[in-house]
Design a protein around this nucleic acid. Sequence first.
DNA 1: CATACGTTCGAACGTTCGTTCTAATTATAG
DNA 2: CTATAATTAGAACGAACGTTCGAACGTATG
Lengths: 223, 223
Amino acid sequence: MATLPATRATRRQGRVPSGTPSRAPITRFDRRLGQILDHATAVFCEKGYEGASMRDLSRATGMSLAGLYHYCESKERLLFLIQKHTFTTILEKLKSRLENVPDPEQRIRIFILNHLEYFVSNQHGLKVLSHEDESLKNGLSSEIAGIKRQYYRICLGLMEDLRRGRGLDFNTRTAVMSLFGMINWIYTWYNPRVDGSAEALAEQMGNIVLKGIVHGGKTRRKS
Amino acid sequence: MATLPATRATRRQGRVPSGTPSRAPITRFDRRLGQILDHATAVFCEKGYEGASMRDLSRATGMSLAGLYHYCESKERLLFLIQKHTFTTILEKLKSRLENVPDPEQRIRIFILNHLEYFVSNQHGLKVLSHEDESLKNGLSSEIAGIKRQYYRICLGLMEDLRRGRGLDFNTRTAVMSLFGMINWIYTWYNPRVDGSAEALAEQMGNIVLKGIVHGGKTRRKS
DNA sequence: CATACGTTCGAACGTTCGTTCTAATTATAG
DNA sequence: CTATAATTAGAACGAACGTTCGAACGTATG
């Protein structure tokens, strides 16, 4: 492979040098790759990464097989780019939203809301991120794992802040993992007609995690 | 296929007539099939259903490809049998444990404990059940979906009992789905060394769902 | 021993997989 | 317009896929 002429896609592999935000010159190439990634997200979501073939993607994008490989060197890298973009976006939004909110309980509620809002507006991407967590091989999986670790540590920090601030006694790791389960599992059941907006769901889930179903809702009158 | 001589596996396809518990004569055939299913569970768990090949199963069981097909007519049916056995077992255990326990809160705690205990003792099976939820096609998936509906309705009933009994106000569907997320997601993070026994975890998760992290643990002294 | 049946296998079936080759077409720069 | 590079497509590659076939094996019964 080393002697072959480098395609555009292979040349693209190197990272943008950090420190140079590079002012994002959106080229035709990037736009087209973005379209491919959008279609690939939908196909991976429906058929699963292993179950989806490059020919499925070819059909979905209306592009030939060779055309796809002009923009991305492998199927695995498509999944990588999808997961990286999705995870990076949700993480950036979270960091931004957490600024200027000091109250520990409110910060946890923001974490939940951020996740659910992003899910509702990008269901396919978040399902592919959650469900295909183990589909990448050693090389590419480690970078996603790094972002995941950041996401986990932020949430763990939120839990520890609440715990310390109020002198509570609970296992923060279990709490974080339970919360992750609640918000990640949603791709298996969420129905906008039945389950309402992200805000409504986030409040309910926030109540459960923070106060439990016993103390979470407004108590009703007994008839 | 209709004109081919029926193999043992195809003849086995019909259901055992209900009403006749059939006293379970465990034949050599059943024992061997069970071994295959055990190995298949581990392989599906590690590589995913689509990612695992019949040759992987052949290697894991030490049996030839044709040998596997003597015991089960297709890869998909292997997954079906794994999921059906796993789900049926956990459901039966749950029903049995719920007898003679009237208190609504305790019943929810039993539900959680039953699920986590089964997970700890059969991690591969429960992961294959959760993760490969959408891998079966129309014919075989509906039967699994039926068991799942039973499982869901039982848990929904537990929630509604607690809600009515105490005059609480919360969305039972969201509560059930959140709880399912908590207990199903565990296959992505559980580490026995770190996270302890099923009992310990079940108590923590029960506290979260019922009382939340704010009221769930024993309050600590402030230093 | 002969027969029958459950069991196992090596080898192959046709298909689909991810990927690549070559060449034609289109856009861009001088 | 010419030349250079970016973009697309058709056809094919070898490998791996799920599955099947015919023959051999083992064992228990007549």
